[in-house]
């Protein structure tokens, strides 16, 4: 736990901190940087909220375990209460954060990380924490601008970093949904874990597909946005 000048205890579970940075990294997609109050395991989530606002919501941590700042990746949800307000926050603004929680954590065994959209956040955290060496990353998005951390994934993972773009064509990017890409693979490893993170639709469709392709369901671990 950081020194108490970095935060104010807001209630039983939330701490109030001052926002350090708010970067729009793609249209409608932001990275919030906050002081890191607690140690965490890559892949864990925190609750994020605003003082006097609606109940906080869970977000995956999107930074490495050893980084000084804790980062959160989010996109603005039309009609949502929280994300339009988060998008407008300026550095210094008060923001609420919980202790890290959750069990969607990785290890150093070979595995596949499959994400759609901002579901890449927990895998980026694992990657920045040194767990990316023997991983295959499959990231799906509608547009080429949705591969938020490609500049970091690509040099390190090379052909084990697969971008699947359903609406645009470009360079080495697979044109089509990530489910089509996975369906095209003949030799998916049956003894490796598949970690899925993204929308419920992506998770259930991908999980069904992997099971059909012979992956034991015990090797499929999913985290769903809700």
């Amino acid at each position: 736990m950081k020194k108490s000048t970095d935060y104010i205890k807001y209630d039983d579970e939330l701490f109030q901190v001052a926002l350090l940075k708010n970067d729009e990294i793609a249209p409608g997609v932001y990275v919030l940087s906050l002081p890191r109050l607690h140690d965490f395991k890559a892949g864990q989530v925190v609750k994020i909220g605003l003082p006097e606002g609606e109940p906080p919501r869970m977000y995956s941590i999107c930074s490495g375990e050893k980084e000084d700042e804790l980062k959160i990746l989010f996109n603005v949800k039309g009609g949502g209460w929280l994300t339009p307000r988060l998008a407008k926050l300026q550095p210094g603004a008060p923001i609420l954060i919980s202790e890290p929680m959750g069990d969607f954590t990785g290890n150093d065994e070979p595995a596949w990380w499959v994400a759609s959209g901002t579901g890449i956040a927990p895998f980026y955290s694992m990657f920045k924490s040194g767990l990316g060496k023997n991983k295959t990353v499959v990231h799906g998005g509608r547009y080429l601008q949705n591969f938020y951390f490609e500049d970091e994934f690509l040099p390190e993972l090379n052909e084990r970093y697969i971008r699947c773009c359903s609406q645009e064509k470009g360079g080495d990017v697979y044109h089509g949904r990530l489910t089509h890409f996975l369906d095209d693979q003949d030799n998916l490893p049956k003894d490796e874990k598949f970690y899925l993170c993204g929308s419920p639709e992506m998770v259930v469709e991908t999980r069904d597909l992997l099971i059909r392709k012979g992956i034991p369901y015990g090797n499929i671990i999913a985290e769903i946005y809700f």
Binding site: P200, E201, V203, Y217, A222, I224, F226
Partner: peptide
């Protein structure tokens, strides 16, 4: 309408949310 939770055994979960 549908469900976000994605339980492996549930038909509702298969339609998404």
């Amino acid at each position: 309408v549908g469900c976000k939770m994605g339980c492996l055994f549930c038909m509702t979960g298969k339609q998404g949310f």
